[in-house]
Design a protein around this nucleic acid. Sequence first.
DNA 1: TTAATTTGACCGGG
DNA 2: CCCGGTCAAATTAA
Length: 288
Amino acid sequence: MKHNNTNRYLPQSSVCDDIPRACNHQLVLKEFAKEQSLVIQLRAIVLPALKTEQSSELVSQMFESILDCSSKAIAELQHCLSDAPAVHMLVDDKKTVQRISKDIIDSNARPQHNHQSKRSKRVSESMSFETPVPHYDGHQWRKYGQKQINGAKYPRSYYRCTYRKEQGCKATKTVQQYDPVVTDAGGRDHSMMYTAIYYGRHTCNFNGNDNGISARKDNGERNTHINHDHVNYNNNQRSIVSVTCLQPDDDHKKFLGDNVHFDTKINMDWQLDPIESVQLDFDNWNWE
DNA sequence: TTAATTTGACCGGG
DNA sequence: CCCGGTCAAATTAA
């Protein structure tokens, strides 16, 4: 399976302690990038929680202005540094969860089966992601198996939708850890990466669930869930706040862009680097 | 007590 | 027969 290396975390700020040195422009760029990422995440938390149209409009504009300021500063810095390689800004949360493959096999090309085989996954209805947080994808899953796979270092886990029994939702997914290639210039180990493969579209209606992850509607208009949980990443226990917008209105779309779903995970300990993710865009996925 | 996970058995396709 | 997906009893967590 192909792994896309554009999947990056913000590098930790490693300050060089040698006393006399010139301004570390790369560090400045990195810190700006980190700031932008944090602002974007903060925006994703704050805007859906605002009550009125007017206040969200105002706050949205303020966020835009803040991001615009740092973008201009970054652009100016990069202009001054002709040899500075482009810094990948995390201006787009989508970059943190990479869709790495999409298997589409024309269903007309395959032989007809009147009874669908219980033991063969429908490759035609799958999508695959790389992510450090495979369990935070906006849906609830029930593990039903684990298997050591030939030649793989880590076992593969099998999940089905929690609401399969009650609602007949057929969605399943598999999660498998892999060792990512470490290409970070700082030699930092971005371990704990997973490949998550999703099979089948969710047909469940997952309002009102409350097991493990708390979900709520903040009001009638904004169908927004705020989830709190923890994740262990590189041996650091981190608090995760996950915001999921199910039916974004125009205001949401304004700051979400075309991706109508989002899921930004922020680290509540600001001394540590944030983890971001994105709500998988199940509804807009072309399953056929 | 209920719900979720673990784990070896089981199953069927290749 | 091997492989990987699923089942379900036992175990653990809530």
